[in-house]
C-alpha cells in the first residue's frame, strides 16, 4: 500500500482512532437516512425517528470521546485560536498540504459547528409536535406548546437546510484537498493511517 521504498522520506502515522472513524461513517449513514426520510420518507416517520435516535447516541459518544479519546479526537487538540485559523486561511490557496495530522484549525471549528447543529437538530426533533398525532417527538409534552408546535419544528426545518449546506462545504473541502493539494482525506478516515513527511 505505502511505497516506503520509493519515498523513504515519508512515514505512516495513525491519524484517526477507530472510534472516530466508526463515528464518522455511522454518522454519514444515519444523517443521510434522517435527512432523506425527513424530506421524502413516508408520512409515518418512524424510521426518521430511529435515525435521529441513532444520531443522538453517536453524538453522545463523540462528545465524551472529545475529552477522553485519542489525541486527534480531543477538543483540546483540534480547537485552535484565532491566529492559527488566520494562518491556516492564508495558507489555504497554496498547493501544498497544510500538513496537519488531525483536524486543521478551520476544520476543527467546522467539526464543532456540525456537532452543535446536530445537537440542535436532535433537541428540536425530540420536542417537535407537528400536530398530526403520529409524529410527535417523545419530549414534545415536556416543553411549552409554543415551543413544541412552533419554534421546535421551525428550527428543525431551518437547521436541516443549514446542515445540508455545511455537509456540502465539508465535501467541497475534501474535493479541494484532493484536486488542488493532492491530498486524499477520505482514505485516512477509512484506514486511520496517514502518510506524512519526515
Amino acid at each position: 500500500m505505502k511505497d516506503t521504498a520509493a519515498s523513504p522520506a515519508k512515514k505512516t502515522v495513525t491519524v484517526w482512532d477507530p472510534v472516530v472513524r466508526l463515528f464518522h461513517w455511522l454518522l454519514v449513514a444515519a444523517f443521510a437516512a434522517a435527512w432523506g426520510l425527513g424530506e421524502w420518507g413516508p408520512n409515518q416517520m418512524t424510521w426518521h425517528f430511529y435515525a435521529g435516535y441513532a444520531i443522538a447516541g453517536l453524538l453522545a459518544v463523540r462528545l465524551i470521546w472529545g475529552f477522553v479519546g485519542s489525541r486527534t479526537a480531543r477538543f483540546s487538540h483540534f480547537l485552535y485560536g484565532p491566529k492559527a485559523v488566520a494562518d491556516y486561511l492564508r495558507h489555504l490557496p497554496s498547493k501544498e498540504s497544510s500538513g496537519h495530522v488531525g483536524h486543521n484549525p478551520l476544520g476543527g471549528w467546522s467539526v464543532l459547528v456540525m456537532l452543535g447543529l446536530l445537537i440542535v437538530q436532535v433537541v428540536t426533533g425530540l420536542t417537535s409536535d407537528p400536530q398530526d398525532y403520529i409524529n410527535v417527538g417523545p419530549l414534545a409534552g415536556s416543553v411549552p406548546e409554543s415551543i413544541s408546535t412552533s419554534w421546535a419544528p421551525k428550527i428543525h426545518e431551518f437547521v436541516a437546510t443549514l446542515l445540508l449546506i455545511v455537509v456540502g462545504i465539508h465535501i467541497a473541502a475534501i474535493v479541494y484537498y484532493r484536486t488542488w493539494k493532492g491530498v486524499n482525506l477520505v482514505k485516512p478516515m477509512i484506514t486511520g493511517k496517514k502518510e506524512v513527511g519526515e
Partner: peptide
C-alpha cells in the same frame, strides 16, 4: 394512515 394525511397537508399548507 390518517395521521399521515394530517402531516402531508400540514407540510404544505400549515405555517408553524
Amino acid at each position: 394512515k390518517l395521521g399521515g394525511t394530517c402531516k402531508s397537508c400540514h407540510d404544505e399548507f400549515r405555517s408553524k
